[in-house]
Amino acid sequence: MTAPLPKSGADAATWDRVALVDLLDRVLTTGVVISGEVTLSIADVDLVYVSVHALVSSVRAGGPGPVPLRGARP
């Protein structure tokens, strides 16, 4: 019953990081958007990506301190 997971072979750490980007591609930009009674949804996926970008870059650079984010709200 259980489908094979896309994990075979790849180095786990690399796989996890790469897979997160693939996963965000799907959960953030696809999947059914239900209109009408929806009370909350991501209005601006690009903005989330901008934030993710800043965060990932910061993590990679290993820089300490808070991450300068483009504010989600004015």
């Binding site: 799907r26 959960v27 953030l28 696809t30 999947g31 059914v32 958007v33 239900i34 009674e37 929806v38 009370t39 909350l40 949804s41 991501i42």
Partner: peptide
Amino acid sequence: VPTRLATVYQ
């Protein structure tokens, strides 16, 4: 049918 991330109802 997967739902888009962050679909929350009251």
